[in-house]
Structures are given as structure tokens and as C-alpha cells.
Simulated scan of single mutants.
Amino acid sequence: MTENPTDPARPTQRLSEAGVSIWLDDLSRERLDTGNLAELVRTRDVVGVTTNPTIFAKALSEGNAYDGTLAELAGTDVEPAVERITTDDVRAAADVLRDVYDATRTVDGRVSIEVDPRLARDTAATVETATRLWATVDRPNAMIKIPATLEGLPAITAALAEGISVNVTLIFSIERYRGVMDAFLAGLEQARANGHDLAPIGSVASFFVSRVDAAVDKALTEVGTDDALELRGKAAIANARLAYAAYEEVFATDRWKALAAAGAKPQRPLWASTGVKDPSYRDTLYVDELVAPGVVNTMPQGTLDAFADHGLVVGDTVSGTAEASAATIAAIEAQGISMDEVTRQLEDEGVHKFEVSWDELLTTTKAGLDDAGA
């Protein structure tokens, strides 16, 4: 059956109308070459794209869409080759989404590319790389992904101060999220002082969801009591809803209002890691339960397909839930589980996983360059 992109009953359209921007958590040369990305914009209401080293490593290892580029780059060093391949894809995706960017007045139509994750604990190197990637992609609707490590916070501020749009990634705790929002406000204040137009400077704060449940559910299962088992599958949504409450608080302050009066747009919460890890959970759980105005949900293809087929949109499922969400977190901690420890571990694991994926990307690209030059 051919999808009707103007069907008001379409779940993705209803989600968009509820104020959630749908971004695709995937990108490949094949998607670009076949027109698949443009088709998702038309039929699935996709208005943005996120990437990471894992996504690019997978794209390079499948099919032959990169053969021509690898042949052209044969004989070059692997790291410049990786940067060329990934920035080419992001630039092309940004061009596909440029009409969305213009139509939404710079809010959506964004495509993110990540700084080398091996630099996550190095502020100066992160800023240097972010600046180079921004110049290389050379599209106003690009975003540079910087991790929300302690060392990443000043890098976020420095990049924004230079007019670079930033996707802050790997946020797990409310405390760190507040630090991210403060870094955003400081960056825009410096950008204004530097004479930059604030209107096109975009930012999202990528708050990870399913990984929280995976970690907390494991701990609750180890506790094993009925009360503990009853709390499985509740930590991630409660944590994200508390993040939204923090967002509402910060973006109602006089500090933000002064920046908004100068043309700035808020740093939107972005729900990341929205594919369920536990197959017993509803496959659209982290979309259905996190509907709120002014947020982004970046979905892997499987989650997007599932939501397009049977997603539920019953209105705002986040606003006004802070008290109940705090009670859920308190109940989890009453089982002897420290959310601070869980989120700290998840950040360390997240950085490590992206480092491993980066190494895989380098290895796959090196093999492709060697084959092309043989």
C-alpha cells in the first residue's frame, strides 16, 4: 500500500502535530543515493538526522555505495579519509533537508556529525575538531555533536560562542543536563557579545533513554523482590520526564528571556536511544510516553517503522508528570540503586562504546582503502 503523506491519521503526522520533531538516527550513502532519506521526509515526517561512529561504521561495512570514494582516496591516511567520507554524507543530507530548515526558520532540517569520541575528555581538542568539522561540512543546518562529559561542557560553550550549532550527546543525569543547559546559555551570551546573529544557532540536548532502563532493570532484577520487579521499565521514562521539567524551569528564567529577546531559539530536549532494549516492552514505548511540545525524538529505522505502523499519540504525556516521576525514581533508589552511580557508569560506557565504534570505522575504512588501492 502506498503511504499518503497528507493522511491525518498517520501516526508520524500526529506526533509532529503534537510538537515532536521526528529525526532519523541513521545515515548512509545508500540512503542518499537511492532517495530514501528524501522519501522519509515526505512520507514519515522526518525533519532531521543524527549520526554517530556506530552508524558510519555500519554504513561502511555494508554494500558498495562507498566504493567510488574509497577508490578516489586510495593511498591517503585513514583518519582524513574517514573525515572526508562522513562530512560528505552529512553535507549531502543537509542539502536534502535544506527546505525543511528554511520552512521551519532554522529549527529543524538539521543533520548532526560527531566529534571524534576519543577526544571526549579533551576540551581544547574537541573545540578544534568541532570548528574544523563545521567549516568542512559548510552548511548552516549542520550540527556538531559534542559529548556532555565534564570536559565537554566548556567545549559546548566555546563552539556556540563562535556561532557553531551543537548537538550535545550522551546525557544521562538531570544534574549533568542542568550543566549542559548552563553551558548553552553561556555560549549564546558569548556569541551575542561576539556579534553573532543568534537566530540560526541551533542546539539540542540528547538525553539518552533506553540505556537507563537496561541498566536499572538489571539492578532491579538482581534485587529480585516483588516491589523491585514491579519498577522495571519505569526508570528511563521517569528520568526523561524529570529532564523535561528541568528544561521548562530553565527556559522560563530571565536569563533565557534576555537571549530569546535577542533572537535566540531554545536548546530543545532530544530523546535519544529510543529503540527498546527489552523485547518484552512495546516497541514504541519511548516515543509514545515522551510526547511533549518542543522536543525531538531521534529514532532508528526500526523504531520509526514501528511507530509509523502503530504508534500512539494521545496528547502530551510529559508535562505535569514531574512529581510522579520523582516518586518513581525515589522508589527505585529505595531498592538500594543509586541513579547517580547508574548514570555515571552509563556515561563512561557510552564514551567507550563510541570509541570502539570509531576504531571499527577506522579499521573498515582502512580495509576499503587497501582494497581500492590493490
Results as ranks from 00 to 15, higher is better:
V166A: 11
A135Q: 13
Y101Q: 08
A94K: 05
L40A: 09
R31I: 09
K145G: 14
T12I: 09
S203Q: 04
E333Q: 06
E175N: 14
P300F: 00
A205L: 10
A228C: 05
V46W: 08
D95N: 04
A327M: 11
L97Q: 06
R110H: 05
S206F: 02
E349W: 02
I22K: 11
S16M: 04
V318S: 12
T149G: 15
E323L: 13
S16P: 03
E341M: 05
T321K: 14
T284N: 07
G224R: 00
I337C: 13
A38D: 12
K218T: 10
T253P: 02
R31E: 15
T284Y: 02
V82C: 14
Q190W: 03
T365E: 12
P8E: 06
A306Q: 07
T76D: 01
S338R: 00
A186S: 14
G315F: 04
L290F: 07
G373K: 00
G195A: 04
L133W: 15
D116A: 06
T87R: 09
F208A: 04
P147I: 11
Y286Q: 01
G275I: 03
G350L: 14
H196S: 12
D182K: 11
G336I: 09
L170R: 07
R282K: 01
A135R: 15
T303M: 08
I174Q: 10
D99T: 04
K277S: 00
S21P: 03
T6D: 15
L15R: 02
V90I: 04
D116W: 08
K277D: 02
D77A: 14
K265L: 10
E341H: 04
S206Y: 04
S165E: 03
V351S: 02
H196Y: 10
L312W: 05
T76I: 13
G233P: 06
D67G: 02
